[in-house]
């Protein structure tokens, strides 16, 4: 899902860098107000957790498997701001240390996957947990987190031809279906992962 460098026009990535940085600072302060001395260790732990969840292969019924993202379980259990800060940190580390993703695309990736993904999953879970079974609410939270993230990435790419030439060449009519269809499977994977982690946490609490 990571967009590489050279796809996003400066008309978009420069303002988004500013918005993203502002949100990150605000998010960090929110977390610090809540857990104070534990802020740094928890951010680091959540970042490492989401990094490793991205490595995990989630088997889908039918034999294939997809990579998890881990944004939904982290956002639901630790809160959406933690999800956003942790995922952004991972994306930045991937871009600068490992050369995966990119610097110009970092704010788009961070805002779509980290911010929208975290808040979508968190609020969908809050809304649905009273209406549906916990497991189903968890699955849907994970599923929609990925679909919303993919939709906004598709929109960000799709409006490039309108902004300036020589960047990502295809418009919305192409990007939305091309990105959304495969991400239905990634969404199912994320949904399964969210349910598994939730089951584990619930069982762990019962055993204590």
């Amino acid at each position: 899902m990571h967009i590489p460098d050279g796809m996003i026009s400066p008309k978009m990535y420069i303002p988004l860098h500013v918005v993203n940085a502002g949100l990150l600072v605000y998010g960090f302060k929110r977390i610090k107000n809540k857990i104070d001395e534990k802020t740094l260790p928890y951010i680091a732990s959540c970042a490492a957790l989401s990094f490793v969840l991205m490595l995990l292969q989630v088997p889908l019924p039918g034999g294939t498997s997809v990579h998890g993202v881990g944004v939904a379980p982290i956002a639901i259990i630790f809160g959406p701001w933690m999800g956003f800060v942790a995922i952004s940190l991972v994306l930045l580390i991937q871009a600068i240390f490992l050369g995966v993703g990119g610097i110009t695309s970092f704010p788009v990736n961070a805002l779509c996957i980290g911010f929208l993904g975290s808040f979508t999953s968190y609020y969908i879970y809050l809304f649905l947990r009273n209406l549906l079974k916990d497991k189903v609410a968890m699955f849907l939270a994970g599923f929609f987190a990925i679909l919303v993230a993919a939709l906004f990435i598709a929109i960000s790419l799709g409006i490039q031809p309108m902004l300036s030439p020589y960047y990502f060449p295809f418009g919305l009519k192409t990007t939305i279906p091309v990105l959304l269809v495969p991400h239905i499977f990634v969404g199912i994977g994320e949904g399964i992962l969210t349910v598994l982690i939730y089951e584990f946490v619930k069982k762990g609490i019962k055993n204590e």
Binding site: L53, L56, P59, L193, L196, I197, F200, V201
Partner: peptide
Amino acid sequence: LRKMAGYF
């Protein structure tokens, strides 16, 4: 997978 994700 559950064991692994839960462990982490």
